[in-house]
Design a protein around this nucleic acid. Structure first.
Length: 479
RNA sequence: GGCGCGGUACCCAAGAGGUAAGGGAGAGGUCUGCAAAACCUUUAUACGUGGGUUCGAUUCCCACCCGCGCCUCCA
């Protein structure tokens, strides 16, 4: 098996993956806050962890991944109140929307998708542990973590904690804290606010505690990998470390992986610029799920991704090339036999693909291995040097690639239909298409090219592209 | 100011101490009745700038410039 190396934010180095439980990788992923539809930037991060888990599994490792859904925070409480409904009801619909979105992008479901509000008891228990150790204090009914008691604070983000202590930019009016760096574990309820009655008093959890509580509940005290966007490294992940390690005395996470952000047409994504796209916005503009998936995964996760209209076009064309290749493999007739050179060539592509991903999930490198193979096989096919057994082997390789890329088989229309988007062009049945192709073949035979071109145009108007092949058969596809 | 990421051809982007993967786009060509697909050729003599180390750097070191992120419950 290829040695997998991943960049650890904690050490700023590439480190070999070394699971606590051999053969199984336990991952915690910071999931969505469900107060609105997720935007394309969120999906950049989720796409990364999807490629990561798919790759690990392709390497024969078991994956146990937990993703949280933050279904309680200030924005949710406010929005739900404004809508006049409970937070549970309010967040339900956004969770559903999120599930549809990740399905559209072929992002696999984690083994556990957990809601914060289902784990209040776990959080309370964790806060109690911290209280017993004397690491907390109460102020106005809220409970804070005392950072001064955790000397390692700042080890993840390398943040200058002394600089922060001045606290000039910290909102000191809202809560009474002993130290500006301290953070809330439990927040006292404000009048009219949703709250839980618990052993540690009435209130609701702070932002960070849910991740520590749920991660350790499902994955144990020490997890192999924790993923999230770069913005979460501080303060969120830093605080998770403080809470968790202070409670257990053990290392919380071995390897922290942070995905870089996505920018839109060279600009930071922001509501004021109006470039805050949801998946539905993009689908409504005619972009396909596979196009978006390819674009998101084609740029290695630690590199800022510039999400542009031009990039979408390029991604669509790249996917098209790959799909044309697979279609040719599947539908062409090859001479019997196998070509030892070709088989070796395919082996090499597979190992290059794995080597790329094993190198900190370098998707650009992995894709290069795929495209290299595509060109070489196309060339061999053109020359008639590509044989039946080579095709069988090549098809197996494409399946292997697609177990991670998940863009090769065309499920775009189905996925769009699931979200209520109907195809732009009326669909012609396969029978109708075949009948027209037959008619066109007859016209071609009698060299009635006017008629044959008419038929081709008619099909094109229905979004169907024809490809005449050397052996006389006609391949078609939806454009 | 602190911490971090990045600046490679028209666009996206990999890479490593020995002189530049891959994709998209453009141009020319092969094949084809025409298309489409595919293939071939072609598009980086300063890989942000200036120094240094070295036989040799774009790849290592230093400084600087530019873009971006975080340092405010934003993936």
């Amino acid at each position: 098996m290829t040695q997998i190396r991943l960049h650890n934010t904690l050490t700023n180095r590439l480190e070999p993956l070394d699971p606590v439980h051999p053969g199984e990788v336990r991952i915690y992923t910071c999931g969505p806050t469900v107060y609105a539809s997720a935007h394309i930037g969120n999906f950049r991060t989720f796409m990364f962890q999807d490629v990561l888990r798919r790759f690990l599994r392709s390497q024969g490792l078991r994956v146990l991944q937990v993703m949280n859904v933050t279904d309680v925070d200030d924005r949710i409480i406010q929005s739900a109140a404004a809508a006049g409904i409970g937070i549970r009801e309010y967040t339900d619909k956004y969770i559903q929307a999120f599930l549809h979105d990740i399905d559209a992008l072929h992002i696999e479901m984690p083994e556990e998708l957990v809601r914060a509000t289902d784990h209040i008891e776990d959080m309370v228990a964790l806060i109690e542990r911290l209280q017993e150790k004397g690491l907390t204090y109460k102020s106005d009914g809220s409970i804070y973590f005392r950072i001064a008691k955790f000397p390692a604070y700042g080890k993840l983000s390398k943040i200058d904690v002394h600089g922060m202590k001045a606290g000039a930019r910290v909102d000191v009016d809202q809560y009474e804290k002993d130290d500006a760096r301290d953070f809330a574990l439990w927040k006292a309820p404000k009048p009219g606010e949703h709250f839980w009655e618990t052993r540690i008093g009435p209130g609701r959890p702070g932002w960070h505690i849910e991740c520590s509580a749920m991660a350790m509940k499902y994955l144990g005290d020490t997890l192999d990998i924790h993923t999230g966007g770069v913005d979460l490294a501080f303060p969120h992940h830093e605080n998770e470390i403080a809470q968790s390690e202070a409670a257990t005395g053990k290392q919380f996470v071995r390897n922290w992986l942070h995905a870089e952000h996505l920018i839109i047409e060279g600009q930071k994504m922001s509501k004021s610029l109006g470039n805050f796209y949801t998946l539905r916005d993009l689908f409504a503009r005619g972009h396909k799920p596979s196009t978006i998936r390819f674009l998101l995964l084609s740029v290695p996760y630690r590199r800022q991704l510039n999400f542009t209209e031009d990039g979408l076009t390029q991604a669509r064309n790249s996917v098209e090339r790959l799909r044309n290749f697979v279609a040719r493999l599947k539908t062409s007739q090859f001479p019997a036999g196998s070509n030892a050179e070709m088989l070796k060539r395919i082996d090499k592509a597979e190992s290059d693909f794995d080597a790329g991903l094993a190198d900190d999930i370098n998707t650009a490198m992995a894709l290069a291995a795929v495209f290299d193979l595509v060109r070489d096989i196309n060339t061999a096919m053109d020359r008639g040097e590509f044989l039946q057994q080579d095709a069988v082997r090549a098809l197996a390789a494409t399946e292997k690639f697609d177990a991670i890329l998940a863009v090769l088989s065309d499920t775009d229309d189905d996925k769009l239909a699931n979200l209520g988007f109907s195809p732009q062009k009326p669909r012609m049945s396969a029978e109708e298409v075949d009948a027209l192709i037959e008619e066109r073949n007859a016209a071609k035979k009698r060299r009635d090219f006017k008629r044959s071109d008419e038929i081709r145009q008619k099909l094109a108007d229905s979004g169907i592209m024809l490809e005449d092949t050397k052996d006389g058969s006609v391949r078609w596809k939806y454009k």
